[in-house]
Amino acid sequence: MDDARLRTGEEPFPSRALPIGSPGRKSSGWYGMMMLITTEASLFVYLLFSYFYFAIWSGGSFLPSELPKFNLSAPDTAILLLSSVVVWWGEKGARKGSHTQLSLGLLAGIVLGTIFVGVQIMEWADKPYQLNTSSYSSLYFIITGFHMVHVVVGMLILLALLVWSLLGYFDRQRHAPVVIGAIYWHFVDAVWIAVFFTIYVSPHLG
């Protein structure tokens, strides 16, 4: 590279007028999370595909005699949806620069997530069948299990965000990790709607 090119290179381009680093949804991490959500959503599509494949090809013998009930799953669904609302409220706090609102929202999200997982485990314990009892039981536990793992990962993300929030890492301009972590939590909740419909609602429709 010769000196003339270098000198022209030093001419002021308006580069410093651009935002620097990881500004919210313009951060690379946001795009990366979108990719993760795309491929994870595909994973759940294949899980539910497997469920319906069995439901169609196994005829009447697929479902257990006692269909999944709503007494625990319906309130649990409400709890998970509420957790999305509080995390959204916390994220709004981050945008206003309120550490308190952000931290409270994240903490409430973690608490509600914990309740959700606890209720799920109660429901698992009540089942008369186990993972290796039948094809249905295998599918039931693998689908709800995959979802539960995602909830736990989401809670770990919320926990990390809470720690970082308490350490004062975020302000009005810089809170990309909050935006990225929150959208993952919303994704996990949205997936539950599909799982809930498949496991709990669809057997009653047939």
Binding site: T39, E40, S42, Y46, S50, L139, I142
Partner: peptide, 25 residues
């Protein structure tokens, strides 16, 4: 790849569960 690899990862995971834990996929 983002849309297709989960299918095979899931299939191999289910196969491994069938082999290791006696599931019935």
């Amino acid at each position: 790849i983002l849309f297709s690899v989960p299918a095979v990862s899931l299939a191999f995971f289910m196969l491994w569960l069938d082999r290791s834990f006696g599931t019935h996929f």
